[in-house]
């Protein structure tokens, strides 16, 4: 019975991922430059070695992506958690709050990218205009997307804007399923709000938090649309993400072997990070039980 339940999902995933996986693995050890010819040439591990040792652009892009994944997602978590805890206090009115906060998620990156391109513009955009008006010109904000120091930040801010509400809803759904009796019992035992949060709520929220973090990390690792729309990876290479660089290799240069090797390295990195997270969660669970 258990097997029957899981069968449809496994069949779906297997049938659609096994060929891409094998094909990518096969490509990663050949040189296939579709812009000049459809012929493959076996090169062994050369692609991997080149990515890891000879491609400074790859590492720059990985670094930028790491900033988005670590800092950006952390902000999303903290902000989402805060908003969820606050919204939960709002009683019946919280549904309206949640609905309003969820609107950014509904906006496809291809749309929000265009909005933020104007919003962040120094000459034509509302953001700097409002800042300068409010501070009477005392604060001279930077030309956000055109400044190598802030270009990556604009992508992060846009990502946070869009996905902190995702964290909020996930955590709120988690909070809603915590038994009120449990909290009451803790209160009777004399726990204050602070202890209630750290000792009771947070451990119970751990599974939603972990899945939320994992999903957000995986998706932020793929940040692509926003890069294209906001900066094209520039100025210079200051906001080039690994997904954008992989896209260039795959869909502009059509260097299929090199792209495959790069994809595998990314896959391994994400797997390692996810493993670490899950083992933390497991230890946490073990400690609780």
């Amino acid at each position: 019975m258990a097997l029957l339940f899981v069968l449809p999902a496994v069949l779906l995933l297997l049938s659609l991922t096994i060929y891409p996986l094998i094909r990518t693995l096969a490509l990663s050890v050949v040189q296939l430059e579709l812009s000049v010819s459809p012929n493959e040439k076996f090169v062994g591990l050369t692609n991997f070695i080149k990515v890891l040792t000879g491609d400074s652009r790859f590492w720059n892009a990985m670094g930028n992506t790491a900033v988005l994944v670590v800092v950006g997602v952390a902000i999303q978590l903290v902000l989402g958690m805060t908003l969820a805890l606050m919204a939960q206090q709002m009683g019946r009115g919280r549904t309206i709050w949640v609905t309003l906060f969820l609107i950014p998620i509904m906006i496809a990156p291809v749309v929000s990218g265009f909005q933020f391109r104007v919003i962040f513009n120094d000459t034509f955009g509302p953001l700097n205009y409002i800042i300068e008006k409010l501070t009477n010109g005392v604060i001279q904000p930077p030309a956000w997307t055109a400044n190598p120091d802030t270009s990556l930040l604009t992508i992060m801010m846009t990502d946070v804007w869009q996905w902190a509400p995702f964290m909020m809803l996930l955590i709120l759904a988690g909070l809603e399923s915590i038994s009120p009796e449990l909290l009451e019992a803790a209160k009777v035992d004399g726990a204050n709000a602070w202890q209630l949060f750290w000792r009771i709520k947070l451990p119970l929220l751990m599974s939603v938090i972990i899945i939320g973090l994992l999903i957000r990390m995986m998706d932020t690792f793929k940040t692509f649309d926003l890069v294209v729309l906001l900066t094209n990876g520039g100025p210079g290479d200051s906001s080039e993400t690994i997904a954008y660089y992989t896209y260039l290799n795959g869909f502009q240069f059509f260097s299929m072997g090199y792209t495959a090797a790069m994809a595998f390295i990314q896959l391994i990195v994400i797997i390692i990070i996810s493993r670490v997270f899950l083992s933390i969660q497991k230890r946490q669970r073990g400690a609780d039980e």
Binding site: N121, A143, A146, P148, G234, P235
Partner: peptide, 15 residues
């Protein structure tokens, strides 16, 4: 203009 490093066709034209 300060935005020049992120100025494409649209921005240049409108400036």
């Amino acid at each position: 203009p300060p935005d020049v490093l992120n100025s494409g066709y649209d921005e240049l034209r409108d400036l």
